[in-house]
Design a protein around this nucleic acid. Structure first.
Lengths: 146, 146
DNA sequence: GAAGTTAGTGGGGAATAGTGGGTAATTGTC
DNA sequence: GACAATTACCCACTATTCCCCACTAACTTC
C-alpha cells in the first residue's frame, strides 16, 4: 500500500524520483512498471496490473455512451506506461507535466492502492480549499456512517 | 493500443508528426495508412482497416433513416486517407484543419483503438467542461466501483 | 562518531524523435 | 502545353529520451 507524503524535485529533464517505499511496493508486486494518468489537478500513478484491470472494465462499456466518452477522454486517455530507470526515477511525459502544472517541487501522496503526483503549490491550495469546506465534508462522511 | 498524450506542432505546410509510439502501433498492424475524420470538436484517426470495418457497419444501416443520414454526413463524409511521410508526419487536409480549429499547438490523444487530434486550447477547454460536469462523472465512477 | 550503505540529485553523451525548409514531382487550371 | 498551387521527398538541425556514471545527504551499524 502506498502511504505518506514525499517531496521530491523534478529535474530539468522532467524526471521524478519515486520514493523508495513506493518502489518497495512495486517490487513486492514483481512489476516495476507504473501507469501515470491525469486526474483533477494532479497526476495519478497505478501499478500497471491494477491499471489494466481498471481499463478493461471501461473498455467493456459502450464507447458511444457520452459519459463513457467523457470519462475516457478525461481519465483514460492520458495514461502512459512509465518504467523506473536504474536510479528509481520516472520520466513524466511533457504533456502530463504541463497539465498538472508540475514545477520543480513535487509532492507524492500515497493513496493506498495508488499515489498522486502534485505540484507542491497546487497541493497546498487544494488542501486549503478542502479545509475551508471541511465542515460540510465531515457531515457528509457522518451521513455515510464513517 | 493508442495511449497517452503528445503535444506536437503543426508546421506551416499543415503537416503533423505522428508520435513514434503511435507509429509503432500502426507498424504492428503492418499498415501505415490512417483514416482521419471529423468528430465533435476534434479530428479522429483510425488505422485504415478498422475504419473500413466501421464504415461497413454503418453502410449496412438503413440509408433512409434521417438519423443515419445525419451521422454519415457528420462523421463519415469527411474521412480522408492519409499516409505518413518518411519523417513520420501526416498532411492534414486544409478542410479538416479548419474544422478542428487546429492552430500551431496540437494535442494527440490516445483513445485505445484510435486517437484524437485536438487544437491544444480547445482540448483544455473541453477538459474544463468535462470537469464542470464532474458531479455526473464521479457518480458514474462510483457505479463502476472506481 | 567513523565507516559503510542507501536514497536522491545532477549531468554527460549517444541514440532517437520531432521540426523546418529547399527542391522535385504531381496535380489542377487555363 | 504552360503555369501556379499543392504535395512528396530529402536533408539538416534541434530537442528529447535513454543509459550511463558520479556526487552528496541521510541513515545504519558498529
Amino acid at each position: 500500500m502506498f502511504t505518506g507524503w514525499s517531496v521530491h524535485s523534478l529535474d530539468s529533464k522532467g524526471r521524478l524520483a519515486v520514493p523508495a517505499r513506493f518502489r518497495d511496493v512495486l517490487k513486492a508486486l514483481r512489476d516495476d512498471r507504473l501507469v501515470i494518468t491525469t486526474s483533477d489537478r494532479c497526476l495519478v500513478a497505478y501499478p500497471q496490473e491494477d491499471w489494466r484491470a481498471l481499463a478493461d472494465k471501461i473498455s467493456r462499456l459502450s464507447q458511444l455512451d457520452p459519459r463513457v466518452q467523457a470519462f475516457r477522454r478525461y481519465f483514460i486517455s492520458g495514461a502512459t506506461d512509465c518504467t523506473c530507470d536504474k536510479q528509481g526515477r520516472v520520466l513524466i511525459p511533457q504533456a502530463l507535466r504541463e497539465m498538472a502544472g508540475l514545477e520543480s517541487q513535487v509532492l507524492l501522496v500515497g493513496m493506498q492502492s495508488n499515489f498522486e503526483i502534485w505540484d507542491k503549490d497546487r497541493w497546498y491550495s487544494a488542501r486549503e480549499e478542502i479545509r475551508a469546506n471541511f465542515g460540510d465534508l465531515s457531515s457528509f462522511m457522518a451521513e455515510l456512517g464513517i
